[in-house]
């Protein structure tokens, strides 16, 4: 699923900059870059959740849902055979 891959890529960029900032907390360029990637990640995450349901537990919006969608497959380790 390309969605997950793109979302993972933005999330990874944000995470990598956060680790860098732990040891370079005054670095403006890294802070701005993190903000930029975070905005891209958030936009994609909102779009993802509208289509596929919650990405993290607190994001689960139950309005109009008939059940607790957090439990829905696939979980991250699941394989759809023939995928």
């Amino acid at each position: 699923m390309m969605w997950r891959r793109r979302l993972s890529a933005y999330a990874f960029a944000v995470w990598e900059l956060e680790l860098f900032l732990d040891t370079h907390p005054e670095n403006r360029q890294a802070m701005e870059s993190r903000t930029n990637y975070r905005q891209k990640m958030q936009a994609l995450k909102d779009e993802y959740e509208q289509k596929f349901g919650p990405y993290v537990c607190t994001a689960a919006d139950l309005d109009g849902e008939e059940h607790w969608t957090w439990i829905d497959d696939p979980w991250p380790w699941d394989m759809q055979e023939g995928e």
């Binding site: 979302l7 999330a11 990405y55 993290v56 957090w70 991250p76 380790w77 394989m79």
Partner: peptide, 15 residues
Amino acid sequence: WQYQKNLQYPVKIRT
């Protein structure tokens, strides 16, 4: 800690 229902990097091993 809060769980994210996503791997940090995808794992899809067909065989």
